[in-house]
C-alpha cells in the first residue's frame, strides 16, 4: 500500500478537525475493509485518522426505548453485550455471524455501516429497526443514510458517532453466506415495531432495501403463511458469478421465512 500520515486523536472534535482540514484524509475504525482496499491501492488517502483512541465512540447504553451503540463498538462486543442480548437479541445474533472471529474482534458496527457494502449485515438491521444515525453534527434516519452501493449521507469531515436502535417487539435475521467470502448472498432482517413490520434486505441488490410487500403481508398477518403469496422480483437484483438475480430473488423469499422463524 501507499504510505500515509497517521493520526490518533482522542476526541471526536479532534478527529473531525483533522478530517475537515484535509479532504483526502480518511477515518479508520477496525480497518477490516479499508486496509485490504489500501493493500490493493484502490485508495490513496493522505492520512489515516485512527478512531481507536476515542473512548466516547465505544459502548452500548439504553436511552428511553432505544439501544444506542457507539460507532467503534466491535462486532464481538455487539454480539456479547448483555443489554443488547436482552433487548434486541436478533442484532446480537447477527453480529455473531459477521465475517470470522478475528474480523469480529476488530471490525466495528460504525465502520460497517459507514462503508455500506451492499452485502454487509448491519444495514438490513438498521433499516428494519428504523435506526437513527447520530453524527458529530446531526441525526439521520436509516432510509436517508443509505444511498446505494458504498455511499451514505455522511458529508466529508462528518463522523458517525453512534447508532440508536429502537427496541422492537420481535426481530429475526437469516442470511445465506457465500461460502468463500462469508458475505451475505441474501439476508433478511424482519422487525415487528411499534410502527408496523419492517423488512430489510441485504446482499441481493446493489444496496440495502425495504421489502414493502412482505411488510404489508406481515403487518396484516404475522405468520409464515402470510409470506407464501409474496414474490420477490429479480428486477434490479445482482447477477454475478455467485448467483443470478432469479436465484437471489428466491433466496430473499427463503431467508424471509427463516428470519420470521428466528423472530419467533
Amino acid at each position: 500500500m501507499y504510505d500515509f500520515a497517521y493520526h490518533k486523536p482522542t476526541s471526536v472534535a479532534d478527529a473531525v478537525k483533522i478530517l475537515s482540514e484535509d479532504p483526502d484524509a480518511k477515518p479508520i475504525s477496525g480497518g477490516m475493509t479499508l486496509l485490504p482496499a489500501l493493500k490493493h491501492r484502490l485508495n490513496r488517502p493522505t492520512s489515516l485518522v485512527d478512531l481507536g483512541g476515542i473512548a466516547e465512540l465505544k459502548g452500548v447504553k439504553r436511552e428511553g426505548d432505544a439501544i444506542v451503540v457507539g460507532a467503534m463498538t466491535t462486532h464481538y462486543a455487539v454480539a456479547t453485550d448483555p443489554l443488547l442480548k436482552q433487548s434486541i437479541p436478533a442484532l446480537a445474533r447477527m453480529a455473531s455471524t459477521v465475517g470470522d472471529t478475528q474480523v469480529r474482534n476488530r471490525g466495528t458496527l460504525g465502520g460497517s455501516l459507514a462503508n455500506n457494502d451492499p452485502a454487509a449485515d448491519y444495514p438490513a438491521a438498521a433499516v428494519a429497526l428504523g435506526a437513527t444515525f447520530i453524527t458529530n453534527s446531526r441525526r439521520i434516519s436509516a432510509e436517508d443514510f443509505f444511498q446505494g452501493m458504498f455511499t451514505t449521507a455522511l458529508e466529508p469531515g462528518e463522523l458517525l458517532v453512534a447508532v440508536s436502535f429502537p427496541i422492537p417487539e420481535k426481530a429475526g435475521y437469516a442470511k445465506l453466506r457465500n461460502p468463500a467470502s462469508r458475505y451475505s448472498m441474501a439476508g433478511v432482517f424482519i422487525a415487528k415495531t411499534a410502527g408496523g413490520v419492517r423488512v430489510g434486505v441485504n446482499g441481493a441488490g446493489p444496496g440495502v432495501f425495504r421489502q414493502t410487500e412482505m411488510e404489508t403481508a406481515l403487518s396484516a398477518n404475522w405468520s409464515a403463511t402470510a409470506l407464501d403469496g409474496v414474490r420477490q422480483s429479480p428486477d434490479s437484483l445482482n447477477s454475478d458469478i455467485h448467483g443470478s438475480a432469479e436465484y437471489r430473488a428466491n433466496l430473499v423469499e427463503v431467508m424471509a421465512k427463516r428470519a420470521l422463524a428466528d423472530a419467533g
Binding site: 479508520i28 480497518g31 486496509l35 493493500k39 464481538y76 474480523v103
Partner: peptide, 29 residues
C-alpha cells in the same frame, strides 16, 4: 494469504485474536 482470510498470521492483541496482516503496527501502540 495476506488478505485476512487464512488466519496463519493470528496473534493476540490485548488478549484477543486478530489477523496481524490486517492491522497496522501503529494501531497496536
Amino acid at each position: 494469504c495476506d488478505t485476512s482470510q487464512c488466519g496463519a498470521c493470528v496473534v493476540h492483541v490485548n488478549g484477543e485474536s486478530v489477523k496481524a496482516c490486517t492491522l497496522l503496527a501503529v494501531q497496536a501502540e
